[in-house]
Design a protein around this nucleic acid. Structure first.
Lengths: 191, 191
DNA sequence: CGAAAAAATTAATCTAGATTAAGAAATGAA
DNA sequence: TTCATTTCTTAATCTAGATTAATTTTTTCG
């Protein structure tokens, strides 16, 4: 199943056989059942996770005790609490499986050692970061310019398959409103 | 003035003299007056800008014709419209000086050529991206959990110096509300 | 300096979405 | 196949912040 990560890397950069092998060997396979946690608030997040299949949400709990979904992750995405991972501090986020899932994980020590000396893998992760930043930028732009109802419809158009996969209340939270309001929207128009 | 960029790079990575020189030589100096544009919506953004001094805002204009400030940039920050720069498409953002400013710029061609072969500079930009992603993450978390009033006070606490430097209406836009509302907040409590 | 432009304030009114509270459906485990 | 848990819906009420519009203050620059 490391083929899948290999293919993902080859989409963006051209490592030598040995560079690729060294990296893939540094990863380990893990299975997670729906509702189980990859990372819990307060823990140190010492791994970066590549999702092979399944689905995750990352969320935090606000002062009122409400869960706020910050992100989703699906096949072929890298997921972690970056702040915890990079700065070695307790995580403010939880990362929880939203389906039975499989991931490859790599520890900070191993990743650091590889990034210390391998050009192509720095390129790979630089490119991944660029892509995420562009996506986040788009998301902020949407959040700044669309109403809740518009946000929902745009999200459904862009991710028609994905909408089916997570409960409505997670989607509502991710889009920045309450499940009751999402329900109201869905009552208005059929999408 | 390329000393400043050099020092910034040395904070994060350890290039050889020649790697450093090659990179610095690829940058060119530019002065911009307050209100002038580095990037305009619709243009291709072929440069990445390192701010030596001064201040910039990036914004887009929403459907209703209202300017939405997406980000600010100050000394020692890299600034660009990433989507336009990376994917070579017309920019959706404007980047405008909010003070008389000075920058170093590097073209996409030159940067690509350098990143093609230099480990340390890939590390440098990877680290920059990591930092920005962590900051963006924090920002999204704040936006999801704080009221407008709280957002404003937290922002003032974290950036007391900066608050003086930009007009209130830009700050309001950046925080996601109207200048009228910001004015109301400021009327309530003194900060 | 003084006029014009840009920025900030104030106040009245309005609305998208929150909150609260029940009940209905769906899912799941035993 | 049933009981319990989780998820979704509906509806009434409430509020943070938008909108509009007029006024004042500050900045700019000839």
């Amino acid at each position: 199943m490391k083929e899948q990560l290999k293919n993902h890397i080859l989409k963006f950069v051209s490592p030598s056989e040995s560079e690729l092998k060294a990296f893939l060997n540094a990863t380990t396979f893990k299975t997670i059942k729906n509702k189980e946690y990859l990372v819990k608030e307060g823990q140190y997040c010492n791994y970066q996770y590549f999702i092979l299949n399944g689905c995750f949400r990352s969320f935090f709990v606000n002062k009122k005790g409400v869960e706020k979904v910050v992100n989703f992750g699906i096949e072929d995405w890298w997921l972690t609490d970056l702040d915890s991972f990079i700065n070695q501090k307790p995580s403010e986020l939880n990362i929880q499986a939203a389906e039975d899932s499989q991931v490859l994980k790599i520890s900070k020590e191993k990743l650091d050692a590889i990034l210390e000396k391998t050009l192509v893998l720095n390129q790979y992760f630089r490119i991944i970061h660029e892509k995420v930043r562009i996506a986040d930028q788009k998301r902020i732009q949407f959040m700044y310019s669309l109403s809740g109802e518009e946000l929902y419809h745009v999200f459904c158009q862009h991710n028609p398959d994905f909408v089916q996969r997570v409960p409505q209340y997670m989607l509502a939270s991710y889009l920045g409103f309450t499940p009751e309001f999402l329900s109201k929207i869905r009552g208005r128009k059929k999408t």
